[in-house]
């Protein structure tokens, strides 16, 4: 009986011993994997570092000015307005129709083979808009505060474009019943862009909520700087 007891105790002991050795083995395997990971992390990716360095320089220069700038963050798929490096407005950059292919085309055209990260906005074109404030309310308000009603008027854009030149276009639509601003110009613009798209012009189409569209439309103006954060 005692012999069985001794045997079972020694069996349990050896099992525990084996378990300890096994776990230790796993731990050393983990350590090995960790150190390999660190080595990989320590591998110096010069091109990624160069891009980050240029981006940070650009951000710091833009942040030093007192103007709002536009950030096309294609890495995080976000469109942002920033002021002194603080995000003041942000919206997802999910294209409305043609998927991520448009974003990739836009990105490569923006950089134009030279790794360009900064471009000015050259034009803002309003296709159609509706009036946000009903005229009746506007008349009361403008009377009460003695202000020209035009100053209180806020167009809600139904569709507008932000153009960066060289065939780079952000096409923004809002769910708004708008009236065309200039039918002839609109047709010429659309026709031109449809034709030039075959030559490589890049358009990202976005759909925004009316309030978000108002903000972007009013905040973005020709001369504003746009910064591209390209995806890796």
């Amino acid at each position: 009986m005692l012999r069985y007891g001794v045997l079972s105790v020694s069996l349990i002991g050896s099992l525990v011993g084996l378990l300890v050795v096994g776990c230790g083995g796993n731990r050393s395997a983990e350590n090995e994997a960790q150190s390999t990971g660190e080595e990989i992390r320590q591998v110096w990716d010069r091109s990624a570092a160069e891009l980050e360095y240029r981006l940070l320089q650009a951000e710091m220069s833009l942040a030093k000015s007192d103007s709002v700038y536009l950030v096309l963050d294609l890495k995080a798929n976000r469109l942002q307005l920033k002021l002194e490096s603080a995000v003041v407005w942000s919206h997802g950059l999910e294209p409305a129709s043609d998927g991520m292919e448009d974003v990739a085309d836009f990105c490569s055209r923006f950089q134009s083979g030279e790794g360009r990260l900064v471009r000015p906005i050259v034009e803002k074109y309003l296709f159609e808009a509706s009036n946000k404030t009903p005229d009746s309310l506007l008349a009361i308000v403008s009377g009460a505060v003695a202000v020209n009603p035009e100053l209180l008027q806020r167009h809600v854009p139904g569709r507008f474009q932000v153009l960066f030149g060289e065939g780079l276009i952000l096409d923004i639509r809002a769910d708004v019943q708008g009236t065309p601003v200039d039918k002839f110009q609109n047709t010429v613009k659309d026709l031109r862009q449809a034709l030039r798209r075959s030559l490589g012009d890049a358009i990202i189409s976005l759909k925004l909520e009316p309030d978000e569209a108002v903000t972007l439309f009013r905040a973005v103006n020709p001369g504003m700087v746009a910064l591209l954060n390209p995806p890796r």
């Binding site: 240029r54 833009l62 030149g165 034709l195």
Partner: peptide, 28 residues
């Protein structure tokens, strides 16, 4: 005419552009 005119004006950045961005030193 439609394809090559009616386009946006080309505007160059006067105050700030990629040309002022420098590269990292050659030594890692």
């Amino acid at each position: 005419i439609i394809m090559f005119s009616f386009g946006p004006p080309e505007v160059e950045l006067r105050s700030f552009g990629d040309s002022v961005l420098t590269s990292l030193p050659a030594d890692d």
